[in-house]
Design a protein around this nucleic acid. Structure first.
Length: 408
DNA sequence: AACGCACACAACCGCTCGCTA
DNA sequence: CTAGCGAGCGGTTGTGTGCGT
């Protein structure tokens, strides 16, 4: 097997997509969805293979994408999730609404690994480089992660009061330019910046806590090849796409609405995720991962009331023990990831400027797809909230693609 | 101003998996 | 059971851009 059959066809364009191609693909997918990617280029009038069209849609044209640089909280989350999931970029992306696996992969390879190494952390094992010398750079494999207890290993310290050894982070309120500048400075001079507080904490915890690399297990494994995730994970969604722990007192009332059979136990691209890490006080009480995802369209935070969103109990002392400041993450998740939260947001319908009629009834459109559309029907049924994008984040991309649309 | 380098991002390639005939 | 096909994933490469010299 191997190469996709359509790729053997000759005279197919390769390389960067032109605005005209983007427009054709966007129009086609918006109007008809994709029943079969291999047929999309022909139907859309593109000299591309279906695979290329799919990739372009997923990584660039999909309207629920959140473009722009990653926030510190997102980076922290990626590091944390990578410790648990390894190079499963698609699964990581599922936990980061609006981000693609490609984006996360690029960020990891180009930025995060470098930072971790500079701080003495092996990005593959998430352990101090000093510990992994000799066998380092070994990429985690499924067998690595499932050996022994078949428990997920999520990086977190099991002992010690990390508040006593790590500084409290300053709010990551720097501008992108400032952050980039700081990043460059810090990477060259090894000067700690506020932008990197969590990785610094990460490193500090790694070096200063004798047991800092004692991974605590998740209660169940997502790696079991014989069981689907919803059978093994203690993480469930109710019908509002809330992911909750079955043992959580907070969410026990939701169990009755737990995942319908066959539904995908991952966070859709339009929901918010509030990851927290609990740390077992007692070895007999294994820690577990607690992920909560609120539907953007339903979450009260999406209305602008960030304080009334679904939150973990304030007395969750586990927060304070995490080397990653999850409470901070929660607030910033609501403040930054909540699509449509920023007043300067730009509606995609405006951005498209006619490519898609502003008066289009997306509910009706979703009916047109009638199940033929997979991921993208999510944003259609979620309504326009998923189409909101901060204009400054588009940058050159916005300018590039907007030109042809204005001609329509 | 020109050049080279480093980086970020986009896209391609090869592979696996699941479905179906 | 097997082969063919499509979808998806992860690794890798290509390219544009910004910055320093």
């Amino acid at each position: 097997m191997g190469r996709h059959s359509c790729c053997y066809k000759q005279k197919l364009r390769k390389g960067l997509w032109s605005p005209e191609e983007d427009e054709k693909l966007l129009k086609h997918i918006t109007k008809y969805g994709h029943v079969c990617w291999s047929s999309v280029p022909k139907l859309a009038g593109l000299q591309r293979c279906g695979k290329s069209c799919r990739l372009r849609w997923i990584n660039y044209l999909r309207p629920d994408l959140k473009r722009g640089s990653f926030s510190q909280q997102e980076e922290n989350l990626i590091v944390e999730l990578h410790a648990a999931l390894g190079n499963r970029w698609s699964q990581l992306a599922a936990q980061l609404p609006g981000r693609t696996d490609n984006e996360i992969k690029n960020l990891w390879n180009s930025c995060i690994t470098k930072k971790l190494r500079q701080r003495g952390i092996d990005p593959n094992t998430h352990k101090p480089l000093s510990e992994t010398k000799g066998g380092e750079d070994k990429v985690l494999t499924i067998s690595d992660k499932t050996s022994g207890s078949s428990e997920l290993k999520l990086l977190a310290p099991t002992t010690g009061n990390l508040n006593s050894i790590v500084p409290q982070p300053a709010p990551p309120s720097m501008s992108v330019a400032d952050r980039n500048q700081t990043e460059r400075s810090s990477s060259k001079n090894f000067v700690t910046s506020t932008k990197d507080f969590s990785l610094d904490q990460f490193a500090a915890a790694s070096h200063e806590s004798s047991n800092s690399m004692d991974y605590f297990p998740l209660r169940n494994s997502v790696y079991s090849p014989n069981l689907s995730m919803h059978q093994t994970l203690p993480l469930w969604f109710n019908q509002n796409s809330r992911l909750f722990d079955m043992n959580s007192e907070l969410n026990c009332s939701m169990i009755s609405t737990a995942v319908p059979s066959g539904s995908r136990p991952i966070v859709s691209t339009s929901v918010d995720l509030k990851p927290t890490v609990s740390i077992a006080e007692d070895d007999s009480l294994p820690g577990f991962q607690y992920l909560e995802a609120g539907n953007s369209s339903n979450n009260s935070a999406s209305t602008g009331n960030a304080s009334s969103g679904t939150e973990l109990p304030s007395n969750n002392s586990l927060f304070e023990s995490s080397i990653f400041q999850w409470p901070d993450l929660l607030l910033n998740k609501q403040a930054q990831i909540q699509l449509g939260a920023e007043p300067e947001d730009l509606k995609w319908s405006e951005y498209l400027n006619g490519a898609i009629s502003p008066s289009t009834d997306f509910q009706n459109q979703s009916q047109l797809f009638n199940g033929s559309v997979k991921e993208e029907n999510q944003f259609l049924t979620d309504g326009l909230s998923s189409w909101l994008q901060p204009p400054e984040l588009f940058g050159k991309d916005f300018q590039k693609i907007s030109t042809p649309f204005k001609q329509i």
